[in-house]
């Protein structure tokens, strides 16, 4: 049996009871629907199903052996009463804010510089993108050595410049910003490439006209570059907030949440609940809270981008 008759029969069976116009539409797009199925199945199994399970878990107590029991808001009460709960949210907010200041601005500036360069652009683009190609765990462990207060690279540089060394990860004052630096370095390449692509869509005539009018580089950036890339800047802002609020790998591998809980983030606390404290309900409750907060940012973004489109 060949596949052609099966496809024809399937097409006939699917479209038998439809109006002629709709039938034609379905017949025309049947192959596309077939391809779409693959993506839908993947999303269903790897995104939607886990989300549904996570929401259910946050209202249940389960040991994964017997049937789960519904516990209402108990899991939420447990995590809210956890003494580290407030610290985790404050640390996450601080990390997000610092990551915006450092991680949002730096790639944009680098993209502008790369865009202005006349030589070695491809090479420098490669160099900037290189950290993205490193596995995150390897990159983070590399920084573990950089931050070593003894023979670590950063303190060696400071000592060579006759400056006192820092405690980096070992101090509550510097641990969080140290994690931000790692995160920025790891993700710099992707942001820079996206900004660079956006910069290259700006018509060159605008800059030429501005130059003829005597505008310097900063005025050109302020009056041409930023307005022309506003939409992509907004998209990146949202993505940055969503990504940085879920920060996990940096505190997990570098500080274990310390010193003194100064780098415990919401995602890290979620991990502690689910996998170390054997409390998936608590982990689910924290996950749901984080998801709701991120949904607020998504809604703000959608509203802003709709206004922008108008």
């Amino acid at each position: 049996m060949t596949t052609a008759p099966i496809a024809a029969r399937l097409r006939r069976a699917t479209t038998a009871r439809m109006s002629p116009r709709r039938r034609r539409g379905v017949q025309r797009n049947l192959t596309a629907y077939g391809f779409l199925c693959g993506a839908l199945i993947c999303f269903a199994f790897f995104s939607w199903y886990p989300i549904v399970r996570e929401v259910l878990l946050s209202f249940q107590k389960t040991n994964f052996v017997g049937a789960p029991t519904w516990v209402g808001l108990d899991n939420f009460t447990t995590v809210v009463e956890d003494p580290v709960f407030n610290d985790a949210w404050l640390n996450t907010a601080a990390f997000t804010l610092l990551a915006l200041v450092v991680g949002y601005a730096v790639p944009f500036v680098i993209a502008i510089v790369l865009n202005e360069l006349r030589h070695a652009r491809a090479y420098l683009r490669f160099v900037v993108y290189l950290p993205v190609m490193l596995p995150p765990a390897a990159a983070v462990l590399l920084f573990k050595w950089f931050y070593d207060p003894g023979p670590g690279l950063f303190n060696q540089i400071l000592h060579a410049a006759q400056l006192p060394g820092l405690s980096w990860l070992d101090s509550t004052d510097t641990a969080l910003i140290s994690l931000v630096l790692v995160s920025t370095w790891m993700n710099l390449g992707s942001g820079t490439l996206i900004y660079l692509a956006a910069l290259q869509t700006i018509p060159g005539e605008l800059y030429e006209a501005a130059e003829l009018d005597g505008a310097g580089i900063f005025r050109r950036i302020r009056h041409i570059t930023i307005p022309q890339t506003r939409l992509i800047l907004l998209v990146m802002l949202l993505l940055q907030i969503i990504a940085t609020m879920q920060v996990f790998i940096e505190p997990f591998l570098l500080t274990g949440g310390g010193p003194e809980d100064s780098t415990v983030t919401v995602a890290y606390l979620m991990y502690q609940y689910a996998f170390n404290f054997n409390n998936f309900g608590g982990g689910g409750a924290l996950g749901l809270m984080l998801m709701l907060v991120l949904m607020v940012f998504s809604a703000i973004y959608l509203r802003v981008s709709r206004e922008e489109a108008r």
Binding site: S167, D170, S171, T172, G257, G258, P259, E260, D261
Partner: peptide, 9 residues
């Protein structure tokens, strides 16, 4: 958190 405080501060 307690042990890390004593060792880092």
């Amino acid at each position: 958190s307690v042990v890390s405080a004593v060792l880092t501060r």
